[in-house]
């Protein structure tokens, strides 16, 4: 009897040990995949987080949350596909969910989403010259970009700063490619209007 009990205990122990060895092997594989495919994009992700949140602490939180989520769902990532676009999509979704929650709080209306067109803007746009942008506008360019509504800011960041193609942007933003095109066109027009207003205020005619 004692022999049978000892044998059963041995098999139980063996099963538990092999399960934990298999599990730690799977964890090692996931960690290796994370290191190889995702870590090279950490800096780009951090910069995207900074431009989305406009705050260094929030950016760190968003980056960490994105990485943990990517690790948790690493099985749904197809090895060898576009890791950067996959990570950017996770970050965008995380930010939008959080942003929506905050937006529902009183006093958190995003005025930047309201159509932007001051009186005299069209005239200012016609007066805008390339040398004003190249020479005189400095921080105004960053301010103008940061003041765009998040949807418009995002398409410019993805296209101009990260160099994504429209197809990749459609994948990240989960919208049709035609919407990427029209949103980007609108965002660029809004940015130009803001720059023209800055230039007009600075006295360029």
């Amino acid at each position: 009897m004692a022999y049978r009990q000892r044998l059963a205990a041995f098999f139980d122990n063996f099963e538990a040990m092999s399960k934990s060895t298999l599990a730690s092997g799977a964890e090692d594989k996931k960690a290796a995949l994370f290191e190889r495919e995702f870590l090279p994009h950490l800096e780009a992700l951090y910069n995207f987080a900074l431009k989305l949140t406009l705050n260094a602490d929030d950016a760190k939180d968003l980056l960490q949350e994105t990485c943990l989520k990517a690790y948790r769902f690493i099985d749904s990532y197809k090895d060898g596909t576009n890791a950067k676009a996959w990570l950017f999509r996770i970050m965008k979704n995380g930010f939008i969910n959080d942003y929506r929650k905050k937006s529902k709080q009183p006093g958190m209306v995003d005025y930047a989403d309201v159509e932007y067109m001051q009186e005299g803007t069209q005239e200012a746009v016609y007066n805008l010259r390339p040398d004003m942008i190249r020479g005189k506008l400095g921080d105004e360019i960053t301010n103008a970009l940061d003041s765009l509504g998040v949807d418009f800011r995002t398409v410019i960041i993805l296209c101009d700063l990260e160099g994504f193609k429209y197809e990749e942007m459609a994948e990240i933003l989960e919208i049709p490619i035609g919407t990427v095109r029209s949103r980007l066109h609108r965002a660029r027009t809004m940015l130009k209007e803001k720059l023209a207003d800055y230039a007009a205020k600075m006295g360029y005619k």
């Binding site: 400095g138 410019i156 101009d160 940015l191």
Partner: peptide, 13 residues
Amino acid sequence: IEKAIREAVKKKN
């Protein structure tokens, strides 16, 4: 102007 804005966005960010 479009070219200048793109260059400036990259340079300033």
